[in-house]
Design a protein around this nucleic acid. Structure first.
Lengths: 150, 150
DNA sequence: TTGAAAAAAGATAAATTAGTCTTTATTTAT
DNA sequence: ATAAATAAAGACTAATTTATCTTTTTTCAA
């Protein structure tokens, strides 16, 4: 469904939203451990998220780390996917046809249209903060690990 | 969304359903050209489809080629995905968590559950023949090319 | 103003997926 | 029986994605 990059991007973003703040920046090691992802690779992905769409903010040096601004928290989940170049799920044809549209639909188009619209809804109407809130409900989990909300 | 393998598998299967029959078997070159896919690679995929789930049938030698049995035509689209090992879309967690379930849901679980159910519906309730019929409606297209139904 | 802590950037490696080519086996027709 | 047509099987190459390691830059605190 999604690439590893996209999965890590989402998990990392949710984790940062949940545990980080401007005066509690999180280090890459903590993040990678928490979401159970390869550290260096996750670092690369966070770089993408800081460069594109301003999803994640970062500062270097002592007490540096990653956090989300209030504005970033309001961004739709789609912004995360876009930042890692992975929004094809809601833009491309299921059968991979370049030219597939209402006027020239592929054999699955009719059926998939509605589902695609819902995926789009989900990724556009849900904000990063919304996901963090879900995660905060206690029983909800990132990577098999209960996250303690402060 | 889907891998190239899965896309080619679906396109090839639909094409064979539409144009082939037990006494009009289709050659790999025709198929690959028609669905605009790399020939040798598509051959590999058709091998998978003949070995797994009996989606496609084939015979070698002169006048050999690929076709679908009547039974195969009734198979759900999911059988094609399974045959190429690509049914993760309807089985796996969006965030890639190993342990994500009703009792231990990931932050997107609630939202995605319904969509996943619909994807499953689509892939399980739609048969290969159904897709071929769609394709037969005339304006519908495999790979930007109008397929002439006899 | 120096040292240490952090992310950024860059270079490389490993794994997976996609794609190609060659050889073999099977089938049909002559 | 033999030759030709075809898919199957296997070996190989290329591209992309995933992952790791090293070096550089920035920032803070002593």
């Amino acid at each position: 469904m999604l690439s590893k990059s996209a999965e890590y991007a989402l998990r990392a973003t949710i984790y940062i939203a949940l545990k980080g703040s401007e005066d509690n920046k999180l280090g890459i090691d903590e993040i990678a451990t928490a979401i159970d992802s390869p550290q260096y690779f996750t670092a690369k992905i966070l770089q993408l998220l800081t460069k594109n769409n301003g999803v994640v903010s970062s500062v270097r040096g002592p007490n540096g780390g990653f956090y989300l601004t209030d504005a970033a928290r309001k961004l739709p989940v789609r912004a995360v996917l876009e930042a890692v170049g992975e929004d094809g799920i809601i833009t491309k044809c299921v059968l991979g046809l370049k030219e597939c549209s209402e006027s020239r639909p592929c054999p699955m188009h009719e059926q998939y249209r509605y589902i695609k619209a819902q995926l789009r809804q989900m990724f556009e109407k849900t904000s990063i903060q919304d996901l963090a809130n879900e995660s905060g409900k206690g029983k909800i989990v990132i990577n098999n690990r209960q996250i303690k909300t402060k």
